[in-house]
Write a protein that binds this DNA or RNA. Sequence first.
RNA 1: CGGGGCGUAGCGCAGCCUGGUGAGCGCGCCUGGUUCGGGACCAGGAGGUCGGAGGUUCGAAUCCUCUCGCCCCGACCA
Length: 475
Amino acid sequence: MAERITPRSEDYSRWYTDVVIQGKLADYAPVKGCMVIRPNGYAIWEQMQKVLDRMFKETGHVNAYFPLFIPESFMKKEAEHVEGFAPECAVVTHGGGEKLEEPLYVRPTSETIIWSMYKKWIMSYRDLPILINQWANVVRWEMRTRLFLRTTEFLWQEGHTAHATFEEAEEETRRILEIYRTFAEEYMAMPVIVGRKSEAEKFAGAVHTYSIEAMMQDGKALQAGTSHNLGQNFAKAFDVKFQDRQGNLNYVYATSWGVSTRLIGALIMTHGDDNGVIIPPRLAHIQMVIVPIWKESNRQEVLDFSEQVFQKLKPHFSVKLDDREQYKPGYKYAEWELMGVPLRIEIGPRDVASNQVTLVRRDNREKTPVSLDVLIERIQEMLETIQQALFQRALEFRKANTFRIDDYEEFKKVFEEKNIFAESHWCGSADCEEKIKEDTKATIRNIPFEQETEEGKCIYCGKPSQGRVVFAKAY
RNA sequence: CGGGGCGUAGCGCAGCCUGGUGAGCGCGCCUGGUUCGGGACCAGGAGGUCGGAGGUUCGAAUCCUCUCGCCCCGACCA
């Protein structure tokens, strides 16, 4: 605990690791590329699950669970899908001490096994839509891993829906994308750019992939959620047809969508500072912590008063009373700041004397004395203020680091010097996209929905373009 | 898979080059006391087959060979 966190200005990537390790969010596991999500980190995930699960349910989705193991033959049914995932799959070849007749893939995602089941369940248009989500772990054999951002095994939710028409599937895809946007912006206080992925960046087996993209404090982009319209690709691969009202047989339309524990990394890199994580109030499992400050002479009064405040707040907020004797207040401040608790309530002899407490914001350390009579209202306001302030700060940061660039030489120069979002014209060719990536390492994060149509020229080849896309170096 | 770094107490490290004195330091942990409005202090204490295997030597944490593992940076990806 006494170890210092590497300042962000010194080494951003070490800062990130320090925050995760020292904040006890996660730890390295004995298996390369794998991590243990510790209680502090898992609590964040549970909060995310709680909110997202509610949003999914409100839009008619239900939860289910499909197996971890997928027969090899399933994985090979959808051509693009195989190509996309085969190289990064873990495969089980033995079981019960014997070689398996058919190897089992540990799911990298569940489209194939789910569609093999949908085949059994879908006969008629009356069976549609199917709106299933599952909370699960998946495994992708990544070469290079980073805590939360990319680990061999990770937790996520994956929605898999089946529809009668392309339009309906498209609508579902976009509905979920909007849920992701709402969650990111209103709960995580993380501004995102909502848009469509380029052909090169889209999901293996999808017709369209949409994403929300966030800017981290080092100017790199992080894909925070994806939603795919899979068209009839998986229905065809698994021969899933339904009979419509007129009696015609048709392939079913599919969507899939997911967010993962990567969001925890996103949260850290959006709001964290040199003292640790900052968790937005609406997502915090502990919204505030009471730290009593006493001298031997007034110990009991301070503790009694703190207990009284604690009881008063408990029905309204998620609050913790830190009355541990073995640590001094300063130590406790540092510790709770490291873990990101958005609000601290200091109670010392002076507060007791004037029937007040001292509120301290995690985001800017501002201290405010508040009388007990108005405490609950003030705290409510302050939590909301912090929530807004975090979002605004992140939004300002993104704006300050986003540039419209129309000249390729400038584009290259900028990406050599720093990480930013570049809004530039692009003709739509995968070739230009690839060349730009080779030159600069910047890729098209997405093609934002929100933008005015504007005539322009492709930043690379100069051919006509109708709009701008977002280029950035990505995590 | 390429490049770099590293395995010595729970964590972070020194010691290794130049083999030999009782394996050491900081943090943490335990006990007692004093402290407590921004990471307290004093005293005492517990804790290590020096990543593993082989070799050289009278003697190896230290030299040699092999091996296992991890982290960081690059090519692929949520």
